[in-house]
Design a binder for these strands. Sequence first.
DNA 1: TCCATAAGGTGAGTCCGACTCCGTTTAGGT
DNA 2: ACCTAAACGGAGTCGGACTCACCTTATGGA
Lengths: 192, 192
Amino acid sequence: MPSSRPLRADARRNREALLSAARRAFLDGDTDAHVEDIARRAGVAVGTLYRHFATREALIEEVYRKEVDDLCAAPGDLMDQYPPEEALRRFLLLLVDHAAVGKGMSVALESIMATDSPVFEDARTRMGEALTRLLDAGSAAGTLRGDITGPTLLRALGGVCAMRVSEGWLDEARQITGLLLDGLRHGAPRES
Amino acid sequence: MPSSRPLRADARRNREALLSAARRAFLDGDTDAHVEDIARRAGVAVGTLYRHFATREALIEEVYRKEVDDLCAAPGDLMDQYPPEEALRRFLLLLVDHAAVGKGMSVALESIMATDSPVFEDARTRMGEALTRLLDAGSAAGTLRGDITGPTLLRALGGVCAMRVSEGWLDEARQITGLLLDGLRHGAPRES
DNA sequence: TCCATAAGGTGAGTCCGACTCCGTTTAGGT
DNA sequence: ACCTAAACGGAGTCGGACTCACCTTATGGA
């Protein structure tokens, strides 16, 4: 079922064009661009759009997936280069900067964290695991507390990125990640 | 302009019925209930609904306002009864529990934090000020760090409540508030 | 090279839901 | 009882996501 013959050449081209048109639109902040517009921008008709993506939502999801995949890989990469605490710090900042690329993209992150969509299930899982490894390493090294799990932290981060309003938000997001970091560096758990 | 004659009796009744119907729908988790349905539930026609609320959105906003007002009053009340650190702790938990009332209501909080809507501007301001007073008191008492402002904390909380997915979220939200609290108790700011 | 054919593309049309408009009804003052 | 501004009703408009019957074209085999 996964290999039902490799898309015809023109089909693949159009698919690509659609994704890129949609990405451009979202990066411009036009998060509720009309399907008609996206199709036109890609030089195809709506019918074609719907041949490739079951629904507007599905297209959006697909656009975000790559962005998300990159992000998911980051914790692992950083851990190879830095001690856990530093890797964590860098990852948090990376996340915030990533969200800053454009209003549109932060919506992506919000979606990952807050959507039931099975599409992001996998991304969420991988990222959760990566964070868990990171936290475990820190815990073993004695620089991070051990009672917070990867998935929990993931949610906290989703929250941080969800607040994309007004000018000051970038600085505020940075402050908050600093706050979380301090919380994580703090030794003993207390009854919440 | 604010006092343009006190609504006719039937009008007030219907307005109330509409708000209550909408609230019921949202608490049931049916956050995208159709206006037609809400009107029917309230025993009026759509035209009536639109006489009272300019748009579907406006109705939703109105429904949430009360909820929000209660929440905004909380920090002040708690500060009268407890020392700052404890008041803060209780407020954070209150916030989480409030969001737990129903999926629908947590959307309200998310809106407050993430919407540009001027409607919530006021609520946001008041809550921000209340939190500032709380943080200042804690800072003066030496139990909370002084470099985080009310509005910043407000955003962090908005983030916490934005993650309303799957079973475990309540516990996770509690954990994260604990984390923030630890961060706030931590003394010195570090370069973020 | 050329044909057969299935994969792909098209866009007018359907569907659905938010919102409008104007004729009808009624609260409440005299 | 009567008047009228206020409120109500609900068929109709409008905009935007999605469909489908028909046309076009890539591609693989002769």
